[in-house]
Design a binder for these strands. Sequence first.
DNA 1: AATGAATGAGAGTTCATTCAT
DNA 2: CATGAATGAACTCTCATTCAT
Lengths: 207, 207, 207, 207
Amino acid sequence: MTTASDSPSHTPGAIPRGQGGDALTVAAREMFAERGYHGTSIRDIAKRAGLSLSALYYWHSSKQELFAGLIEDSVNDYFRTCDAALRDCGDDPRERLAAIVRATVDYRVRRRVESTIAAREVRNLEPEHAQRLAELRDAAARLFQDTIDEGVARGVFRCEHPVEARRAIQAACNAISQWYDPEGDVAPADLADRYVTIALRIVGVSG
Amino acid sequence: MTTASDSPSHTPGAIPRGQGGDALTVAAREMFAERGYHGTSIRDIAKRAGLSLSALYYWHSSKQELFAGLIEDSVNDYFRTCDAALRDCGDDPRERLAAIVRATVDYRVRRRVESTIAAREVRNLEPEHAQRLAELRDAAARLFQDTIDEGVARGVFRCEHPVEARRAIQAACNAISQWYDPEGDVAPADLADRYVTIALRIVGVSG
Amino acid sequence: MTTASDSPSHTPGAIPRGQGGDALTVAAREMFAERGYHGTSIRDIAKRAGLSLSALYYWHSSKQELFAGLIEDSVNDYFRTCDAALRDCGDDPRERLAAIVRATVDYRVRRRVESTIAAREVRNLEPEHAQRLAELRDAAARLFQDTIDEGVARGVFRCEHPVEARRAIQAACNAISQWYDPEGDVAPADLADRYVTIALRIVGVSG
Amino acid sequence: MTTASDSPSHTPGAIPRGQGGDALTVAAREMFAERGYHGTSIRDIAKRAGLSLSALYYWHSSKQELFAGLIEDSVNDYFRTCDAALRDCGDDPRERLAAIVRATVDYRVRRRVESTIAAREVRNLEPEHAQRLAELRDAAARLFQDTIDEGVARGVFRCEHPVEARRAIQAACNAISQWYDPEGDVAPADLADRYVTIALRIVGVSG
DNA sequence: AATGAATGAGAGTTCATTCAT
DNA sequence: CATGAATGAACTCTCATTCAT
């Protein structure tokens, strides 16, 4: 809950919630999503947050740190969501795959904006952060892959190219944040159901 | 075949191939893909092309024009590929969906680099170009959707949510350019086969 | 007295006198006069002001704004000077013409530098500012013309071509800033007397 | 009649009239007048002349040379005009002053465009040309001044400040090119008459 | 906890000019 | 007589960042 970006980066103890710090991350999230990392200037962010440029530097030590904080925050959220979903379910591969898909859809809908940033702007992370993100990305891929492979091994999934299957499922889920309209008429839970069906079909479980 | 970006932007007739103009588009393509639009400076592009900054301006009237040219070129290629594929096939929805998927996979592999650019950097196109690209994007979606809907109508596809099906298929195919390794051991044709299978499963045709 | 160009262009209230902002307008005035608008680079201005290029952009939003500010300032000064002169004099056309000529000479001597800029560099003003300046120019012409016409009507001026008379008087006064040497031996007040005589002769009042 | 700018600057023998060379000087004259020296690019000139950039360099060795040629041409014209006028008149100061004024007005109307350039853009001449122009300017001033002084000495002019008188007369005449409209309804000859009257009044000869 | 003033580096773009053909 | 291709320097302007207050 307490994230790096809520407290001044150089005095990491004090947590003045709800003030300037928050406005900045909100503004940064929106603008990075709209215009990308290089397309967004730190002045623009400060202006949209209604603060001075110097105030931004009080809360964040650099543009990169502000940016990386957003992404890290969001990715951590994803893993917490996955963990929670898997904790509450048995060991049947169908059930497990469904849980992961549901967690992914949920995340892509709930964190639509940061999600888009993380997908498109990774290359702008400095090596340090980039590597950590790459590891998390791999971890997510393994989560899917292990479940699929296990299903194939147990004979409940019928799937000649499990790697492609995993890629297709992930790609489909990840794309959601690019088109989902929170004001539209498909509820997140319904959407999750539909993507579970799609995922199961891809691994050869005809719904 | 003859593309806008091969000739000086102010005399759009002549085609001096294999010269400075070409080197520039090649360099631009690579760098935009690696670092994005705003992350790439036109000095970098000129340097990689082995030309001076001013030479770039001899061939292209602006960074934007160079950028938009690349994307337009690539997108036109996609549509030519689709058209050709559909021309050579019957009217069975399975056959048609397979043809479109194959064309899409082919394009995403063949034009891996521009493809990534087009997907991630649309927002950096100026309105004029952006709109044209949006229209083409819609046209591509319709190509998929119409085929799927027809399949459902004829009863050969079994698919409760054809819009999500289309989105999943497109997302899966589009993602290819993000991970495909031309030096890897999966031939494009094989890859296409695997994605045709995935697509058909998504629309309820159990391969 | 307080002019737009003394405060950062984006917070047009505060007036930090005697600081960087002032140095810039001083430098700009001199250089624009010496080399003209296009002949003066913004780097030159910053250097002469002893500031960095970026500091200039802290105080002024663009070269044009800095330029237009100078001119506007100076032209406003002219009109204040004329108004004051006319307020303190009766309604005799001779007295009034003398007052306007005196105000004009005074201004051309006092604001020698900007005066030259305004005369030679109008065409480099962007439409918006240019139009406002044109209107002020017309107003000045009318000030002279009305006085002359009234003198003719009352029979105190003898003048067959009052428009040419006005043009000649204005041209003569305006040219002063091109040759006047503040270190020379003609005091501004004496100069004004001489030009009053010339003006009156032009309208047929033999001094 | 044959001027420097009509023949290629590096092969000063051949004179192919009426072709590219002429178009260039015409275009240059217009653009320098409209936008000033620094505001006019050599590309703009070539384009307006309907020639390529390289063609311009065939006819002129540099932007400066093209520019200086225009001005020199025009100033020489002025002196030829003055000489002719003075040759045809007696030695009465009134007659001589009238002749010079007439020549000046004639020139300012006939060579309106270059005239404006010469007045406003001298500072952009390189030292070499600038000095020559300054000398000519002085010569012109002397022409007026000598005549006025002679008139005063002979007692036909009544004029306490003959230098200011000269400046006023010159300024009035020179300004003509800034406002004269060749399509207006004042014929050059009439205009000259009016300015002769003005000049004589300035030196105390009541018309 | 926040600001106003300043900076150096680098952005995209245009300039006058050259030269082989 | 004229062109197409190229260059290096300079242009206006924006960037992320700093620091005294």
